[in-house]
Design a protein around this nucleic acid. Sequence first.
DNA 1: CTATGTAAACAAC
DNA 2: GTTGTTTACATAG
Length: 527
Amino acid sequence: MNDSIDDDFPPEPRGRCYTWPMNQFDPSLIPQHHYNPYQPMHPHQLPHMQHQLPQPLLNLNMATLTSSGSSVASSIGGGAQGSPGGGASQAGCSSNAAAATASSQPQTVGQMLAATVPCSSGMTLGMSLSLSQGGGPMPAKKKRCRKKPTDQLAQKKPNPWGEESYSDIIAKALESAPDGRLKLNEIYQWFSDNIPYFRERSSQEEAAGWKNSIRHNLSLHSRFMRIQNEGAGKSSWWVINPEAKPGRNPRRTRERSNTIEATTKLQLEKTRRGAKKRLKDRAVGLMGSLHSGLNGNSTAGSITSINHDLYDEDSMQAPFDSMTAFRSRTQSNISVPASSSRVSPSIGTSELFEDMDFPTWVGDTAAVPTIPSDLVDRTDQMRIDVSNHVNGIQIKQEPKPIKTEPIAPPPSYHELNSVRGPCAQNPLLRNPIVPSTNFKPMPLPGAYGGYQNGGAPSWITSTSSPLPGIQSCGIVAAQHTVASSSALPIDLENLTLPDQPLMDMDVDALIRHELSQQAGGPIHFDL
DNA sequence: CTATGTAAACAAC
DNA sequence: GTTGTTTACATAG
């Protein structure tokens, strides 16, 4: 799509690899036939760009050149091996170092002639790249060109490894696991063990790309759930979401962002700017009132509305630089990652949940004890580890990155444990963990070598108890869920109440106090 | 437009 | 460095 010549540069290329110095590029070295990035690659037949490109191109961003790292060598002299993507992220990204490093690999004329640019338009690299006007580095237009190789098209293989998508393969990997769960690195291993394409690209550099894709898919698709592995430094378990809709699994973020972008992006942007300005004004006014006493009613608009602006990612930054936002990977025990607050920081949690692909047992009021969604949402804003426990499983939305002053530090795991009791732990861990390295890789599939789907473990398809051995925890879980909410600091509990004017009162009191001090005595005014 | 693959920024650990 | 999330972009259908 975007493989034509583009003269408009992105205002700020996100990827550092999108920029490379044009003055190190010699278009005369560009041969004129096409390199197909999806050419199926046998080990002996991995003619990656960097073996073929002329030296000045060796350090160019291969992603820019090929749009897909799938056939790009990850290192210049490191052997002819393909990279489904990671190579692009690691090779040739350093524009400044290009001149220094490019000289290390002599290239034959034949190799130079073999170098091509895979653009669907058939455009060669020399044509598709604009030349530097002067001596200085020039930002290159971010450009990705990708086209499937003809033989892949002929085979009707959507991907070089076969017909299945990453998410399909991940699902099979998870289903093949003895207990239906795998850690990330085990998923990697499964790919390597079962799919030749990935096995052949298992070196660190080469694997970076497809591993990235795996992680991306895990996070992206609601058909996968992450279960926090209790314990420091342990990576999570990944399981199949038993309630994920079969077939079509809409992307989590794209869905939302599409909606926003298609409908109200401008308006949202406007709103966000407005909110930002309002908050800034509010803060300035507040500070002004505190320090000058001239604007005592500057908070008349009620600072409570800040609470409603919490999802404005930017709104708090200027006035409250000290406020930090972070998102934690560790505070949840089960995550069905939801829409991104980065996508739509202005959207409330409940709205974000609207099109979430939660399992049905999430939000089942018959099964989920006591915490009103409103309360959960609000406590979520405050990053208190309030969890739902359904069928003994601790379900919790990932904490949203809220740029607000930490009212109270989130309780530690041990603190929570003291409140919620043992059943609050990851129920999966209540069972002996079968070392996942024990499971045998499935036979290679037909598409990529005789793979047989072993079928999902029974619990995956079970609607009553998605996970084994956890039913007995339900009641306790319900109890400690309540306890958790009750254990909120009192100020947080107050904040969880809708329309609580507490913050107004506090601010007003603060202002009164400050102004009274400045006035040298009690003063009377209405805020 | 949707699904998918890929690259990459970024944060937490 | 690894893990996890998210955004952006390219491409195919």
